[in-house]
């Protein structure tokens, strides 16, 4: 599903106090089935961008088009519901949204809100639980009795159960151990590939960008300052660019090797695997 931002400006209205524009005249086109990583400093407007796609934040000017639904300033209730059904949103620390008595009920909450009957919703919940790798016996337990990593899986299942066509995620790996984080990221990548879900991922970790995303979107002060293919982006990224973006680990290592040996590898390596084979080819190991 395609997502289009057309001259969008947005802010948070806090009673009489209006904050500065969080999103400033933003134009953006995310094609169908794309996997885009959003990076930028804290306060650059990344989370607001995600909220705009879901209609949780309404544009003050311009409009956001998700598939064939348009979100405008007025925020028509029906179209918002449509959009929220199509766009699954995984917030930072999504386990804070768990509330039901059993895991199954919690996962089924979304589908039931979107008009499925209880039986259908439970069926979807079971499928979603399987998708995220939760055991059957967990379904009848209380979500609060699970570990942090498990809770996060439940929360993500609760979003996948509505069968979204777009998935927007705000640092889904934050606060998990490396193993848990890898599993969650692998799951997102797999969903993107199998179900052709258009994915938008906010992250601070450049290794995530290099490993999972296809495109990268750099935000600064509420605007998009770069939107490119991941490889192009990292190939052109030089130390002098003032976005203060770290390179992926493998690339940093490559630069160190190149400096030490005085030889330049033929390609820019973004993952450990690429670097290993490039080093073997260059007969440096």
């Amino acid at each position: 599903m395609q997502i289009k931002f057309d001259h969008v400006t947005a802010d948070y209205q806090l009673g009489p106090i209006r904050s500065a524009n969080i999103i400033q005249d933003l134009d953006l086109l995310l094609p169908k089935h794309s996997f885009t990583a959003v990076i930028g400093h804290t306060g650059a407007g990344k989370s607001s961008l995600l909220k705009l796609i879901n209609g949780l934040l309404l544009p003050r000017e311009g409009n956001v088009v998700v598939g064939d639904t348009t979100i405008t300033r007025e925020g028509n209730k029906e179209s918002l519901k449509q959009v929220r059904k199509k766009v699954g949103m995984v917030f930072q620390f999504p386990e804070a949204q768990l509330f039901a008595q059993t895991v199954e009920e919690d996962i089924a909450y979304g589908p039931m809100n979107f008009g499925l009957s209880k039986e259908e919703a439970i069926k979807e919940a079971q499928a979603a639980a399987q998708l995220v790798g939760l055991d059957q016996d967990v379904l009848k337990k209380s979500p609060f009795s699970l570990s942090g990593g498990q809770q996060r899986r439940v929360a993500i299942a609760g979003i996948l159960a509505s069968n979204p066509e777009v998935l927007v995620l705000d640092e889904p790996g934050a606060g998990l151990d490396p193993e848990g984080k890898r599993e969650i990221m692998a799951l997102i990548k797999q969903l993107h590939e199998q179900k052709k879900i258009t994915t938008l991922l906010v992250t601070h970790d450049m290794d995530d960008v290099a490993l999972y995303a296809e495109d990268v979107l750099v935000m600064e002060k509420g605007s998009v300052v770069a939107h490119r293919k991941v490889r192009d982006f990292f190939e052109q990224l030089t130390e002098s660019m003032d976005w203060a973006i770290e390179l992926p680990e493998a690339r940093r290592f490559q630069l160190k090797i190149e400096a030490k040996t005085g030889r330049k590898l033929p390609i820019v390596c973004l993952t450990i695997e690429e670097l290993t084979s490039a080093l073997i080819e260059a007969e440096l190991v």
Binding site: N54, K81, Q97
Partner: peptide, 16 residues
């Protein structure tokens, strides 16, 4: 703050 966050999360799951 937290109320706002949880409300957003549940709205994203279709609560009106």
């Amino acid at each position: 703050d937290e109320t706002q966050k949880v409300m957003d999360a549940q709205r994203a799951r279709g609560t009106t």
